[in-house]
């Protein structure tokens, strides 16, 4: 056994929690090793100090206080059924107050009722087949091009109308001062 192993077992050796073989080995080692012997001595001194600590007296009479308080409370409850009546009325009052305030804050008016009564329409989709999907896709592409053409035509029409109605010369004519306009 080396010193490290012995020192890890010294506490258990002190408490006599080792087998007789281990005890014998440690005893032999301590006899030859002054470092481990000193360690054992210090540990045993600590154990002795801890064992010699006196129990501190509680500042109040703890146990009597505990039992008298508990018994006192139990007597009070057994002889006084009003305790529970009081609690029940308090709970009922709380619930009443809660309902009152909630109705006051959120009153039920005709608009609220109509909003609540409205039926919500959900959009439902038909089931697609692969052919339909492709077809729809093509259609959408075609539509896209058609829409593009339409917008271009509209632009041309607008330009024509503008050209027709608006005067040709937008630039200011010479000789007329700007400030007078």
């Amino acid at each position: 056994m080396n010193c490290h192993r012995v020192q890890s077992l010294l506490s258990a050796y002190l408490d006599q929690e080792l087998s007789s073989e281990e005890r014998r080995l440690i005893r032999n080692h301590i006899f030859n090793c002054p470092v481990c012997a000193q360690c054992l001595e210090e540990l045993s001194r600590i154990k002795k100090y801890l064992g010699g600590l006196e129990p501190p007296p509680p500042q109040i009479d703890l146990i009597d206080h505990f039992f008298s308080y508990k018994l006192h409370i139990s007597d009070a409850v057994d002889s006084n059924p009003w305790e529970w009546c009081k609690r029940l009325t308090l709970t009922a009052a709380c619930i009443f107050l809660f309902l009152l305030t909630s109705f006051h804050l959120f009153p039920v008016t005709n608009t609220n009722r109509s909003i609540a009564g409205q039926e919500v329409e959900y959009h439902t989709y038909d089931q697609f087949t692969t052919y339909q999907l492709v077809n729809n896709e093509q259609n959408s592409n075609v539509n896209f091009f058609l829409e593009e053409d339409e917008t271009e035509e509209k632009k041309k029409k607008k330009k024509k109308i503008d050209d027709f109605y608006l005067p040709q010369h937008k630039a200011l004519l010479p000789g007329i001062p700007v400030s007078s306009r």
């Binding site: 500042q59 109040i60 146990i63």
Partner: peptide, 26 residues
């Protein structure tokens, strides 16, 4: 009772906490 209080006192290190701990445990 004394042993319980002693144990609680050594764990907490002061009388007030030890008393509370003992009473609550009981």
């Amino acid at each position: 009772e004394k042993a319980f209080y002693h144990f609680a006192y050594r764990l907490t290190g002061n009388h007030d906490d030890a008393e509370d701990l003992t009473q609550e445990a009981l």
